[in-house]
Design a protein around this nucleic acid. Structure first.
Lengths: 264, 264
DNA sequence: GCGACTTTGTGCATTCGTTCACAAGTGGCT
DNA sequence: AGCCACTTGTGAACGAATGCACAAAGTCGC
């Protein structure tokens, strides 16, 4: 049972809150008192809400005031029923027969995603990628100020990158605590990632984005999201191969090569 | 409709084995020749297989020859039952009472993921991120050679980055066709992404990894995987907020700070 | 060869997520 | 007002993914 269940990335998995378990019982409340049973929002829906938010922001800039689920769904690349359901998790802010008001949705989604507060970010590993991240214009949609940079290289320590001086990774715990870092971004080579991760955790960081191609082992209360280019490429590769195969099978029927059937 | 983004729902069969060397395959004679779309490998499992592959490669380097599902599962951060099921999708290569042979698994996973062929990659947008990608040491786990680089900036065209000269994005269709690019990586600013994507598609690229924070509209046969830092951060933000809320509610009941109620 | 022990592979129940389809509101028009 | 065209919000059906638990299949020691 050693398997730390940290790592959630490619797939979804809700972080069993110690108490949560609020079953989704549609109890028809006789009392209209809106109890705050935080109806759990499916993990997958949260990811999409972030996408809707971005699309909506773009629309707001274009001066669009109102739109229908159908329009927003098209722009976000999802099915409109799914979009409505996703939005329903955060409340009822649409008007039947009309649609949604862009500004209302933006506000509500930001609220749910916790974007009303800002979350300080630390980037560890100032190589090519780290540089890119540190300079990522004010960081993706403001609200995530980069408040610390770290690297092992002594020559890099003190050098300002994107306006912020680099610190040494040994200072991660102290500095993260001091600056109240809430999100750590690991952009180090794979070999260093686990050690860095441990230091971040020691510094009180409970949310980590990991760009290093390693599976991090973390305590239960820490959440890791991994971004893994190699995995993405391999998934694409799989589909390419599959497509090619099915073409062989369907198109030029060159007899069955060898035991293909898997599973019984 | 408006063309969907990547992520296809589970479907179709499994690729054919090129030629199993000396594998003691308990080939299922149940070949009822109707359609050999054996069982499809769930999308989620494919992503994990790529992870297992990396973990296994690391173990191979450490000289580990054999391991149990329990060990591999721990190293990959998943449940062992899930791991076994994932592996079962690609065949039965374990030995009961013993475990799996590392090299066999590596070979089989590589085969299923289509890593026996190499897939040429083109990186578009040679900014900070593009640089990082172009230099990504031989590219994540070889098998994905970077064969083309593109940017709009005329000053950048011709300049070698990571040993390869940058071309102009207007040449994307031609060059992609010439060099048989099978995977395109978009690392441009959001505003340019859709145009770049269209050019890649025109160049016959059917697999795209998109780092730009935009939802790409593509024809059905093109698969897009997006890597979106902003979304990752916002998901983490959501969980942080939720954690904070549940603590307020359960622990020190200091009234509701700001609209926290999620219920309906 | 036999029995104890280990570990795989998978049927089944369960949970999570998506999609359908429609009742319930809303605004506009006559 | 009454009707119509439109769009939301959601119950319920469906489908995918997960985790459990155990039979099957193998190894090892004697």
């Amino acid at each position: 049972m050693a398997a730390a269940r940290g790592q959630r990335g490619g797939d979804r998995d809700v972080p069993a809150a110690p108490n949560a378990a609020e079953v989704t019982m549609p109890i028809p409340p006789i009392s209209d008192a809106p109890m705050q049973r935080a109806r759990a929002i499916p993990e997958a829906a949260v990811a999409r809400l972030a996408v809707y938010l971005r699309v909506l922001s773009g629309m707001a800039e274009q001066g669009i005031v109102t739109l229908s689920s159908e329009e927003l769904a098209a722009a976000a690349g999802v099915n409109s029923a799914k979009l409505r359901k996703d939005l329903s998790y955060i409340g009822s802010y649409g008007t039947r027969g009309v649609g949604y008001e862009v500004s209302v949705l933006v506000d509500q989604i930001e609220r749910i995603l916790g974007l009303t507060r800002s979350h300080s970010v630390a980037v560890v590993g100032i190589g090519n990628l780290g540089h890119a991240l540190a300079n990522y214009g004010g960081f993706p949609s403001r609200g995530f100020p980069v408040a610390a940079l770290f690297d092992v290289d002594p020559d890099l320590v003190g050098v300002p990158v994107g306006g912020l001086p680099v610190s040494h990774i040994d200072d991660i715990p102290r500095i993260c605590t001091e600056r109240e870092i809430s999100i750590g971004v690991i952009a180090t080579p794979p070999a260093a990632a686990q050690a860095v991760c441990d230091r971040l955790v020691a510094g009180g960081v409970a949310s980590i984005v990991n760009f290093a191609p390693v599976v991090l082992q973390v305590p239960d209360h820490v959440e890791v999201r991994k971004v893994d280019l190699a995995v993405e490429l391999q998934i694409l590769s799989f589909h390419v191969a599959r497509r090619a195969d099915s073409m062989n099978v369907n198109g030029s029927a060159l007899g069955n090569v060898d035991g293909v059937v898997i599973g019984r």
